[in-house]
Write a protein that binds this DNA or RNA. Sequence first.
DNA 1: CGAAGTTATGGCAGCTACTGACAAATGACA
DNA 2: TGTCATTTGTCAGTAGCTGCCATAACTTCG
Lengths: 215, 215
Amino acid sequence: MAGMTDAHVAGLRERKKQRTRWALVDAALDLFLAKGYEATTIDEIVAAVDVSQRTFFRYFAGKEDIALSLLTGYDTLFIAALAERPPAEPPVPALLASLDVSLEAIRESDEADTARFRKLHRLIDGTPAVAAGQLRRFAETEQAAARIIARRAGTDVVADPRPHLVVASFMSAVRVAYETCVRDEIVEPADVVPRVRGLIALAVETLPGAWSAAP
Amino acid sequence: MAGMTDAHVAGLRERKKQRTRWALVDAALDLFLAKGYEATTIDEIVAAVDVSQRTFFRYFAGKEDIALSLLTGYDTLFIAALAERPPAEPPVPALLASLDVSLEAIRESDEADTARFRKLHRLIDGTPAVAAGQLRRFAETEQAAARIIARRAGTDVVADPRPHLVVASFMSAVRVAYETCVRDEIVEPADVVPRVRGLIALAVETLPGAWSAAP
DNA sequence: CGAAGTTATGGCAGCTACTGACAAATGACA
DNA sequence: TGTCATTTGTCAGTAGCTGCCATAACTTCG
């Protein structure tokens, strides 16, 4: 995969849009790291790319959104992969396989995305607003994944909450894995990916026993 | 328990502060429900209680904070209960027992808190900003709980991520339980409490098997 | 190639959340 | 009652975010 962010073939208009979009993202990440997230204003970001503030808000919902915009691509990949898994497969193996797809995408990203990944992971550490945005992202992905798992099982998320329970538990493990990376300042995709895999494996061997110990 | 919110004995100053605090909360919840969360301004809230806007921000960090302020008391109760559990007890039973303490507190709240609880649950449904605040609350409680569980086990959250994994999984089940209440418009504490208990029981019998099915 | 149509951009005006600094008021306490 | 500590109000300002309309840029089709 050559990266989630390149517009291979498209009209000039579309290519231009992608270019300004990622120029904004890069400018934002650089400024956030240079002078702090809160201290950076939208005006400074748009000045660096020479677009109007109004244009910024046509591309991104806000500061939080631009900071995390890199990751939405990997989320989409995860959900798409999950939807492709064979329906007979149990939930956790399906989730594991789909997670692997997104992890591979992270590992095989081009240099531009890798640089953004590094910067983002360094940013999240010590920036509560961005960390809160992460929570929102995970929650959204969880909703989507739960719907898919429920459909696979032939049930409905409203009628049967068990798919939601399983997905929420799984996603919380993934979230904890990423949080340990941020905490330990592991920013290289090449290091993050095995760390996440390792923590998920640890969850697989820890959680059944932990939940079974309930009276 | 007569409610988390009453200032039994204290100086006049402290009693006055509590009164304005909860007057602000009630005014805010009423306005949020009457004309929508986003459409309600801080100015309208403070006008209803006749305090200055500046005072509002001395009591609450913002709109999101005042909406969820009722729940912080129950969170504190949960964490305090967890810290009191015998160290020999396994994590999930300890978490279950502590959850029961906060659920009992919700059930036995006085009428004022019960009314707030109802309003809040009706508000969260269809108000993404407040729902996002809920996520933050759960994350904070999760951090605190993970530290306690790790200390009980004689380890450290940094050295050993397993306590964090277990707590995150547990809290995600609690969160899913509350989310189903909001979705199904179950707002009465008397109905919410058994629903949460039921979903946690379902998690206990579902999750071990689900996680064990991993290859 | 050029005109007509579509879509992105810029500029502006305005609202609202939120904060710092200082002055005024109000409960606490001797 | 007078002094002290704490809370409150006022004011001015910053910054995120949005609607509106004119203009510029790409696209498409004759």
